[in-house]
Design a protein around this nucleic acid. Structure first.
Length: 150
DNA sequence: GCCAACGTTGGC
DNA sequence: GCCAACGTTGGC
């Protein structure tokens, strides 16, 4: 059982969209590190924070579970898709996605600014300089601590 | 809108 | 394999 944090821009897809959809495939990840984690490490039943980036209130907004383990991201083959990748070969697909299931919204947004203030979280990847990964692991200690802030 | 950080591409 | 140029992310 592992813990994760997954970023999304709420203008593209938000916690409320996931609440409505209940289960959604997490397509469009075009970063090898993130892909490798989805392919090898994310297991059904793992818990994840949903994080809103690039918006007015940046931070962790909800919880979800991994509903389906890594499988081919078909949007890479769709010329009309925003995340179309001409280099991904159908016989040897380059990109992977998982399905996530809505669990609940947090009572409030735990903002990035707030997370940065806690000494306990100095090793949390999210608050480290230059971090750009859209999917990252969260240690159990950090996970538990962050939930006490809610 | 700016820009630092970082990933990817492609010439050599 | 190196590295400069370029593109993207994402906070501010």
């Amino acid at each position: 059982m592992q813990y994760w944090l997954m970023k999304t821009e709420p203008s593209e897809y938000s916690i409320d969209d996931l609440k409505r959809d209940k289960v959604e495939h997490w397509d469009g990840v075009r970063n090898y590190q993130a892909r490798n984690m989805m392919r090898a490490d994310m297991k059904k039943g793992d818990l994840a924070f949903l994080y809103h980036s690039n918006c007015d209130e940046i931070g962790i907004v909800g919880l979800m579970t991994v509903a389906r383990e890594g499988y081919v991201d078909h949007t890479a083959f769709d010329k009309k898709d925003k995340h179309y990748d001409p280099k991904s070969d159908k016989d040897n697909p380059r990109w992977i996605m998982v399905d996530v299931r809505y669990k609940r919204k947090l009572k409030r947004t735990i903002t990035l600014a707030e997370l940065k203030q806690h000494k306990k979280l100095v090793d949390f990847q999210l608050v480290q300089r230059g971090n750009r990964l859209s999917i990252m692991p969260v240690s159990k200690n950090d996970w538990d601590f962050i939930l006490t802030l809610e």
